[in-house]
Design a protein around this nucleic acid. Structure first.
Lengths: 247, 247
DNA sequence: CGACGATTTGAAATCAGTCAAGAGCAGTGG
DNA sequence: CCACTGCTCTTGACTGATTTCAAATCGTCG
């Protein structure tokens, strides 16, 4: 569709609203600089005052926060097309951390430019608002996951969500992917210990629901895994996406 | 400042941005109808397609979702001035429930009017966006609470948050209030059982941190309770509020 | 007074955490 | 080419926080 570095952002916003040519062009014309970062680097730290918003062009990143007792909770995983710190940059002061999981390529967009485009292109503003609301919907689902499902269901739920989101981002199929996280990071996402995650993955594999070798995951029976994980993709608000369910 | 039914909304938005007279007037002029609802009524149900956004004028409401195994997770508590289903109404399809906790008075505002004012008054739009982002920050903190703190800390954290938010909404002081929830509802907010909540409240009382009779809570040592609950109010993004800390 | 929901308390059961140790694997340097 | 190092993964045995089950008490309201 375009040749700008920002086209993954346009693709993503188009999931939420049918932006017209002028709106799309305005997004692509947003001032930005691209750069690469290594795995495990912090993009934003709690208490920072971000001057730029960070669009992920490739690679994976997570949102997390560390409790006073040292426990870490991961809130979401992000991938190509996600403006990973819209929350922090619009709120002006970061209340959580954003950290890369892998090597990433990012585009840094000045926050002022984000505010300006939202004011001058209301549909773009609405689409970005919508995007943060979907983030919030994912936070809620993760709270439910951590609060009210047992360990096995939590693991199954995460595997389903990641598969669907990868497929929607055009990064693979929902049934076969590389999960770019250590079991310790999985544990921090699911509020378990890495030891227990290990046992649950083993259990899911023994039940014939998944196969895995190192980080690669193959889901053998998505329907059944979804049932076990109490996974219902409606919270992802992908109604406008055609192939999501069977990619 | 004004005599419109919507003035609590203006007050709330002013926490986030210094709206000018024209913007404030536009908010107050929003079309709406007010009505009363009884305790435990649903304002929005999961899967609804809300046509109106609901502003709380008095009383309390919660956001929650029910897992397939029957477990319920409450995500946040809402009070005067909160547009309690902005998330659901902007996303068009509700992914969670909103239910009253007490009798409430609400103003119903057509979603179209919300979108229109956001487009025509960018600062109002930004303030509403900001409001949903603060909601999201609260969801994150609750995920951390549920995922990485023990039962006693979770309870302490909730008591601190509720006190601060009541004070900011001008509904009392942070050290002495009526908590409008049963212990079963508290349990659903903290991902515990009501039995265990009961024990934790008893423990906090025995340690001399709080006093309680029925639903009323008096915090005897806010600093210490905050330390136990690992409570740091920065996630509420109240920097612009003067008296929050010592109300 | 009676009834129903909410709270309180105790004892037993369980899911997940902690502790400990070994195995697999990639990168480094001799 | 091989030992060494460090990290992740795996497994087992034990511990413990929270849940479950059961029952009593309290309060409110008709």
């Amino acid at each position: 569709m375009t040749s700008s570095a920002l086209s993954p952002m346009v693709e993503k916003l188009l999931l939420w609203l049918p932006l017209g040519a002028r709106d799309r062009a305005a997004v692509l014309a947003l001032p930005h600089t691209t750069r690469c970062m290594r795995a495990q680097e912090y993009i934003v730290r709690e208490d920072d005052r971000p001057t730029h918003s960070c669009l992920l062009l490739s690679g994976y990143a997570i949102r997390h926060k560390i409790a006073g007792n040292g426990g870490r909770q991961i809130f979401s995983i992000h991938m190509k097309g996600d403006v990973v710190d819209l929350h922090n940059s619009i709120l002006r002061r970061a209340d959580h951390n954003i950290q890369t999981l892998t090597e990433v390529e990012v585009a840094m967009i000045p926050v002022d430019a984000i505010r300006k485009i939202a004011a001058e292109h209301p549909l773009v503003g609405q689409a970005m608002w919508y995007e943060t609301l979907v983030d919030a919907a994912i936070f809620r689902e993760w709270t439910l996951n951590v609060g009210r499902r047992d360990a096995r269901a939590r693991a199954a739920h995460l595997l389903c969500e990641f598969g669907i989101r990868l497929a929607v981002a055009g990064l693979g199929t929902k049934n076969d992917y590389i999960l770019p996280m250590t079991q310790e990071q999985l544990a921090d996402a699911l509020a378990l210990t890495s030891i227990h995650i290990n046992r649950m993955l083993k259990a899911l594999a023994q039940e014939g629901l998944i196969e895995r070798t190192k980080r690669s995951v193959r889901i053998l029976d998505f329907e059944r895994l979804a049932r076990i994980g109490d996974f219902d993709p409606r919270y992802l608000h992908l109604d406008r996406v055609s192939g999501a369910a069977n990619a």
